[in-house]
Computed example of a mutant assay.
Amino acid sequence: MAGKVYLIGAGPGAADLITVRGMRLLQQADVVLFDALVQPEMFDYCQRAELIDVGKRCNLASTQQRFINKMLVDAAQKHAVVVRLKGGDPMLFGRAQEELAALDEAGVEYEVVPGVTAALAASADAGVSLTSRGLARNVLFATARVGYGEDPNDWVKPVVAADTVVLYMGVKQAAEVAAALLAAGMPANTPLLIVENASLPSSREWPLTLAELPKAADWHLAGPAILLIGEVYRAKLALAEPLATAHRKCSA
């Protein structure tokens, strides 16, 4: 009899931000296929499971998506409880649809367990709401990243039109992101906030302007970072240290 696959959101980093449902399923799991951004502390919940690293790492050895899909189907033929543990929320920029399609095609039962996405953790760390009455009434989650062989991603127009923007996987492309937004008419003094390692004790933040964003590409941040854009970060920018000082702290 085939088992059941659970796509579980591990949350933004801190192990205790996983949902209670997600934690209980990890405790029951026979096998857990986990992403690169899942923190090792999360495995304390995996009391009896075989752990399989299927993480994707930029410019490093990674597991191709088609192999992950096959591993999930194969695991469900051997185990009753199979967990696919994804950083953040599985349904946001996590290739969940490809995995669900593979499970559907194979006739494998599945369930998705939501998680806390990095945008919410970064906002909590910064102490700045994504929305603000009279200032920001809409929020856009976007990415500028385009995978190999994929069609171009038309992300610029909606980003420029939004009140608050959360740009996933955008810091390593900081120069390209800044150039595209400036060319589309976004003001050079637009306030931004970079948050690294959201929800973890090592969380750090850097307020800056759109004009200063290209410098962030050279910071070589150690942990995952997210880019927040909008007028809600103007007060953060006003209180910020000079960018050169922030860069030195980043490199320390």
Rank of each mutant, 00 (worst) to 15 (best):
R133W: 08
E176L: 11
G107H: 09
D35E: 12
D74H: 06
K172I: 05
A162G: 07
N69P: 00
G223R: 12
L192Q: 05
A101C: 01
A36N: 06
L25C: 05
L17Q: 11
T209W: 02
P12G: 07
Y6M: 02
G147S: 03
A80W: 04
A29D: 10
P114V: 06
G9T: 01
M42C: 11
L103H: 02
T19Y: 05
N138K: 05
V195F: 13
F67P: 00
V73Q: 07
L130K: 05
V159Q: 01
C250K: 03
F141A: 01
P114I: 05
A240I: 04
L25Y: 05
L33D: 09
S132N: 09
R48E: 08
L85V: 09
G11A: 05
P187I: 06
R133Y: 12
T63A: 13
M23D: 03
L227K: 08
V20C: 07
G87E: 06
F93D: 00
V31G: 00
P152G: 00
Q28D: 15
E196S: 15
D125M: 02
L130A: 08
L221H: 03
T245Q: 14
S199I: 10
V166T: 10
E50D: 13
E176W: 07
A76I: 10
C46N: 09
V73M: 12
P224D: 09
L181C: 06
V232E: 10
L181I: 09
F93V: 00
L140I: 02
M42F: 08
G9F: 04
T190D: 06
I8H: 02
P201D: 14
K236R: 14
A36Q: 08
A75V: 06
Q28N: 10
V156P: 14
G22N: 04
E98T: 08
R248M: 09
I8Y: 04
Q97R: 09
F67V: 15
Y6E: 00
A124G: 10
A142C: 11
E176S: 14
V139A: 06
V139W: 00
S199L: 09
D163W: 01
P114R: 04
A174L: 11
R57N: 08
I18W: 07
G230T: 06
A252G: 03
R57M: 08
K215R: 15
Q77D: 15
P187M: 10
A10W: 12
A102P: 00
A211F: 01
V108W: 08
A180W: 09
A15L: 07
L26H: 12
M42R: 01
V166M: 04
V112F: 08
L210H: 11
D35P: 04
G107N: 05
A96W: 15
V81A: 04
L72E: 11
G9I: 02
V177M: 03
R145K: 14
W219V: 07
A178K: 03
E98I: 11
A122G: 03
R66I: 13
R248F: 07
P158D: 01
V159D: 00
R95S: 02
W219T: 09
E109A: 15
Q65S: 06
V177T: 07
M23C: 11
T19R: 03
T117H: 12
C46R: 03
Q173K: 14
L193P: 03
H247Y: 11
